[in-house]
Every structure is written in C-alpha cells, then in structure tokens.
C-alpha cells in the first residue's frame, strides 16, 4: 500500500511571525480513512488546504499520490476533491444542479455525471429534495450537498474538513457509511473532526495535531495506548478534589471530577470512594480522554 499523502517537516505562517504548522510530519496510506484530530486553531484546516494545493507551505514538503503539491499542483488537483469547512451551497441552485454541474466542470461526460449525481444524491438521502433550491433545505441537507459533490467525483483522495459539523445523529450515520464506502472502493478519505465518536467509528488511523505539531499517529488503539492511563474514574460528592491528584490528571466536568488513572489507581480510588461515601463511575479511557490529554498540553510537552 502506497502513501496517498505524505508531509515532511511542514511549516506554515500567514504573517511571518505566528506559526500555524510547526514541522508537521505524517503519512496517510492509500485507501484508508484517516482522521485528523485537533483543537480549534490546531492547524488541521491549514494542513488540509496545503495538501489540496490551495495554500503554499512556508517550509517543508507535502506529496499527494507521490507528487509534490507545488510542482505538480495541476496533476494533483484532478485526482482530489475537497469539502471545505463550513461551506454551503448556493441558496438559489438545487442539489442536483450543484452535483451535476460540478461533475461536468471536472470533465465528466454528461451521462456519467447524471448517473453519478443520481447515485450520490440518493446515497446522501437528498434524492427527494434534488430539485428544491438549497435555500429551502435544512442546514444538514445543505452540508450533505457539498459532501455529495465531492464524493460523486472520480477523485482518488477526498479531503473532508469537518463534514459532519451540525448534522443530526441520523445524518451523521449516513455520512459515515458513505465515507466507509468510499474507502472500500479504494479511495483515500482524510477527515478533520472534533467528534471522537466519529473518529473511532470511521477511521482506520488517526493523528492528533496540537499547536501545529503532530503529537501522535496510529490506529485508535495505538493512540490510546500512547496514554499511560487505562481507566477513567468520575467522582461526585467530594469536598476537596486536591487529593485526587495523587491518582492521575484530574479534570472538572460540571459537578464531578474525572480522574485518568491506572488499573491499580482506579481500584484504590473506588475503595476510597466507598469508604468516604463518594459516588464513582469507573470505565476504560476513551479516545476523547486520550485526545484531551494529548492535545491539552501535558503529555505533548513531555513527548517533546
């Protein structure tokens, strides 16, 4: 399996002073669904825009399907498609017009464009509203129009920048199954998201990017194993949270405190809770816990 996208020591600044990307290095394999996770402003969209040939890197290289994004931008552009973050279709045109004419603009013959437009509008559950102007569609439907446009192309690599933001759970599930379908057809899908459930559900591998640096890359299990804590303990009803610090990193969530800890730490904390009358809930750490730790600062600083 070759690399669909490879970045090496990628740096980007818009103003010459503040660096949005600081040496980001990662590889996305062909045919996989790859999720790029990061906080707001971590550099996800900038990375995507550089890989899509829409932005020039300040330093470093990015190769898409083996070609350089600067030297071979034209070649790459024909083989990729993007769904921009928070984009929306024109209110005065229909979903059908968007998908069909976009495919024509990409060079597809009319009959093929019509066939694929029908197929993907149906797949994205937009067939019933294909002739309704987008201004009369819900926000979620409009979002799906753009995804249908990108998916219906012949592109080998799809970049989806937060494609499920604002979608209801059912629409999200539809989108996820289409993303997986694209991967099964051999296409590479790179998704940026804040939604950990999404990343766990659809991606073969993930990267966490923090402050312009790739903190960790791997399967969900590998990313979670990068965190030394296997359990999380939610504690409620205690007076002084200071004493929880002995078990691991503590975070306040509303009225309770979440402690990430080891198996022995979880056992010990549960016993203490029973003795003191605290309410506790013990579970395995999730990707979200790993993300908060890795993108939150502490562990990333140690890793550096």
């Amino acid at each position: 399996m070759g690399a669909a996208v490879e970045s090496e020591d990628l740096w980007k600044t818009y103003d010459g002073q503040n660096w949005v990307l600081k040496g980001a290095t990662l590889t996305v394999n062909e045919g996989e669904v790859f999720a790029l996770l990061g906080r707001n402003g971590a550099g996800k969209t900038t990375f995507i825009r550089i890989a899509c040939t829409l932005l020039k890197p300040s330093r470093g290289t990015v190769r898409v399907l083996g070609r350089d994004v600067i030297a071979d931008a034209g070649w790459i552009r024909r083989r990729i498609a993007v769904v921009p973050q928070e984009g929306r279709p024109s209110n005065l045109s229909t979903p059908w017009a968007h998908v069909y004419y976009y495919l024509i603009a990409r060079g597809m013959p009319r009959s093929e464009a019509a066939r694929r437009a029908s197929e993907y509008l149906e797949a994205m559950e937009l067939w019933e509203v294909k002739d309704v102007i987008c201004g009369n569609l819900s926000g979620g439907m409009r979002q799906r129009v753009y995804v249908a446009m990108a998916m219906a192309t012949e592109a080998d690599v799809l970049f989806l920048d937060e494609p499920t933001i604002g979608l209801d759970p059912i629409s999200k599930t539809t989108m996820w199954s289409q993303i997986r379908r694209a991967s099964e057809e051999g296409r590479t899908v790179i998704v940026t998201t804040h939604n950990m459930e999404e990343a766990e559900t659809i991606s073969d591998r993930v990267s966490i990017i923090n402050a312009g640096r790739i903190v960790v890359t791997g399967s969900v299990e590998e990313v979670m194993s990068a965190v030394e804590y296997d359990y999380r303990v939610d504690v409620e009803g205690m007076a002084d949270p200071q004493e929880l610090n002995a078990y691991g990193p503590v975070r306040r969530i509303g009225d309770r405190f979440r402690v990430l800890t080891t198996a022995s730490g979880a056992r010990e904390l549960a016993e203490v809770a029973v003795e003191r009358g605290w309410r506790v809930n013990v579970s395995k750490t999730s990707l979200e816990d790993a993300f908060i730790l890795l993108a939150g600062g502490h562990v990333e600083d140690e890793a550096r």
Partner: peptide, 13 residues
Amino acid sequence: LKIESMFVLTRGG
C-alpha cells in the same frame, strides 16, 4: 459558500 476552492480542484482550475 467556499465553493471556489472546490472549483479550483477541477481540470481547468
């Protein structure tokens, strides 16, 4: 709309 970036990624650009 951010649709320009989608149209840049076509053969004609």
